[in-house]
């Protein structure tokens, strides 16, 4: 099952306004501590890092731990200073990187 990001950024904002960013990724977040029916440990596979950058500058980042539940969801506010693009990045233990981009017009 592949991971799928779902992101919500307001399309427009006024300069200086705090805008709410919401980012969800469908991901199982396998902790590495569960066992399968045969008693073998299921290998850990989680999203280990989430970052959000605006026009190339990091505005939010976070390390994730195995105790975090499936489908991690982030909600945070960013001050709108200029029009531009938010880039969202999730790094998977298996080396995969999932990305999404959202544009905002600031007036």
């Amino acid at each position: 099952m592949s991971a799928r990001p779902r992101v919500r950024v307001p399309e427009t904002a006024t300069k200086g306004e705090a805008v709410l960013i919401r980012a969800l990724i469908s991901h199982q977040m396998e902790s590495g501590q569960r066992r399968d029916n045969a008693g073998n440990l299921i290998p850990r596979r989680i999203i280990n890092t989430f970052t959000c950058a605006f026009n190339g500058h990091p505005v939010f980042s976070c390390d994730l731990a195995p105790a975090i539940s499936a489908n991690p969801y982030f909600e945070f506010s960013v001050k709108a200073t200029e029009s531009g693009t938010f880039t969202f990045t999730w790094a998977d233990d298996d080396g995969s990187v999932y990305m999404d981009e959202q544009r905002i017009e600031v007036s």
């Binding site: 919401r22 199982q28 499936a70």
Partner: peptide, 18 residues
């Protein structure tokens, strides 16, 4: 759901889906 159907069910309340 986690035990029997890992990764299959995604439940979202209003705090997530808005």
């Amino acid at each position: 759901w986690e035990k029997h159907y890992p990764g299959m069910v995604e439940w979202y309340g209003p705090d997530v889906h808005g």
